[in-house]
Amino acid sequence: MTAPALTVSDLSVRFPTGQRASRGAGSAVHAATDVSFALRPGRVLALVGESGCGKSVLAAALLRLLPADAVVTGRALLSTDGPAVDLLTAPGRVLRRTVRGRRVALVPQSAATALTPVRTVRAQLEETVGELTPGVDRRQRADELAIRVGLAPADLDRHPHELSGGMAQRVVTALALAGDPEVVLADEPTAGLDRPLVDRTLRLLREVADAGCAVLLITHDLGALQRSPGLVDDLAVMYASRLVETGPAGAVLAAPAHDYTRALLGALPAGGLVPIPGSPPALTDLPPGCAWHARRPDSGPCDGGGTVHVDGLRATRCRPPGGAPC
């Protein structure tokens, strides 16, 4: 397997809440806790979890776009061509001038609002091209990018409100690709799209990975991944701010090791549409120990969720993958 482009280890994000926060008394949103994963060139890692599990915070945290009061700890080592950078500690200047858009790009959530409404799409795309890759013919490069994501160059002359949801999604993808990034973070790129468009967007990201990018696909749509095998390489399942299971997508989908992954698959049409009882905990109020077993005490043995059990390419919390209860 190729060397990672981005290695995230023990990433935690906390937002202090309420008035007690200013007095240092520990109330906080636990948006992400001890999250570790690696993104490799040519591969797509899908990060799935229910809404509100904290997954969307990850992309913003990696690009350091969170509000100033967020407390981020851990490491995120970018080791593509160019100097190695820890995204979480690098000076803001380095991030602005050499990382964002150029080495690590973001495909933002809700494409329609991610574009400035009063300027044409072409103006914004050409502006990004001009700033990220000075010296190229902006117009020509913008047209190339449009074609690459499946837009007609003429579509670029529209204003954002004149785009359909699918077109807006392709525009923000084109914007993300403008700086030839080595890592692409896609934050819920399929939210709000209907099924053909979801599949199309995922295929587009697959193509981006095949061209050599390392892609992180953050999504709640496990069904789409199951529908189109081979579109994603690796899978990470997040529950209540922690990753509970990671591994090759095919293997995890075929034989989920963690009870939560199994429950997620069971809730899909192919799995019988069995709803998951209870509801995910609020991130302000996580139970001590394993959050999943606090919700489903009858879901089999658990060691408290504090340790990660690794078995080859697969890893789980609570108990070893496929292994006996501990």
Binding site: V48, D155, H159, L163, S164, G192, L222, L273, P275, I276
Partner: peptide, 21 residues
């Protein structure tokens, strides 16, 4: 609380009318 199949708001991908001059 299911993960995926809450019907997402559908967005029609048919291109809207041509850009307004």
């Amino acid at each position: 609380m299911t993960l995926t199949e809450l019907p997402a708001p559908r967005v029609d991908d048919a291109a809207p009318a041509a850009p307004r001059p």
